[in-house]
């Protein structure tokens, strides 16, 4: 409420100045205290912030599909992800697949044995140039200043243009009501309604209260999460010390998820 009032005051204030009415402008100038109040309530001081959030997945620390389960489960629980029986209607935020599917363009016949059989974690890449945001006709999906690509479930019209646009298959559509298919309800995260698209949100809701993403927390150090623009950050250190790959780099989307192989 406060922030919208503040916006309203700014607009009316500017209009008043435009009209050259000094008296009105002056009276609004004194309402500057409103600004400070609004600023204080808009951001949690404990919130984790970055110029550009990025993830580094150290696949050397995983050996089997079981190793990935805790992370996927943590994500599913945190975000009220439904479990539909029909595979065609699946909702997937964080899931696993083989190298040849995650990296179809660099798959090789004589691939290293470990990588060939290793399950890889797959999620939204939070691209620097997200094709989904370009395609969305309502700005229901958008990129935040800190690089996180988010969904507004209330604005989405369910046209699925973003799903066609995403070159990574990272988006899911609610073909049916998800609520009856949610096993563990987490009251701290909204459930979705039928007919809208959803995907991984880099745990924006957890970052806002000072927590690391659910999968990162459950990974016991195998997944790093940090600021790509901070040369001292954990992710930059990992990128400096290890050879990493990203998915379908030739498409120019520039994913924010890196894999150490």
């Amino acid at each position: 409420m406060k922030s919208s009032r503040r916006g309203f005051l700014k607009i009316t204030g500017a209009t008043a100045v435009g009209l050259g009415s000094m008296q009105v402008a002056g009276s609004f100038a004194s309402s500057g205290t409103d600004d400070s109040v609004a600023t204080k309530t808009s951001k949690n001081s404990a919130a984790l912030t970055a110029k550009h959030w990025a993830m580094v997945i150290d696949t050397r620390k995983f050996h089997s599909a079981e190793d990935l389960e805790p992370m996927i489960e943590a994500c599913d629980k945190a975000h009220n992800i439904p479990k539909h029986d029909d595979k065609n209607h699946e909702i997937k935020w964080l899931w696993k697949d083989e190298f040849k599917h995650v990296f179809p363009t660099i798959d090789d016949t004589y691939l290293n044995d470990r990588i060939k059989h290793l399950p890889f974690l797959v999620l939204c890449n939070h691209c620097e140039e997200p094709a989904c945001c370009r395609a969305c006709p309502t700005q229901a999906t958008f990129k935040r200043d800190d690089g996180i690509v988010l969904m507004d479930f209330h604005r989405c019209i369910g046209c699925r243009f973003c799903m066609a646009a995403c070159p990574y298959g990272s988006r899911s559509f609610n073909f049916k009501d998800p609520r009856p298919a949610i096993k563990h309800m987490n009251p701290e995260f909204p459930t979705r309604m039928m007919g809208v698209v959803e995907k991984c949100n880099f745990c924006a809701e957890r970052l806002a209260v000072g927590k690391m993403p659910a999968c990162v927390e459950a990974s016991k150090g195998a997944i790093l999460f940090g600021d790509l623009k901070d040369s001292e950050s954990n992710v930059r250190k990992a990128l400096k010390e290890n050879y990493t790959i990203r998915r379908k780099l030739q498409l120019g989307a520039s994913p924010a998820v890196y894999y150490i192989v």
Binding site: P137, T138, Q139, A140, R155, C156, I157, G158, C159, R160, F173, N174, M193, M194, G195, V196, V197
Partner: peptide, 14 residues
């Protein structure tokens, strides 16, 4: 084809 056809005007509202 829309998942939420009643929101179609969002295309022009936004």
């Amino acid at each position: 084809d829309l998942g939420q056809p009643m929101r179609i005007l969002n295309v022009w509202i936004y």
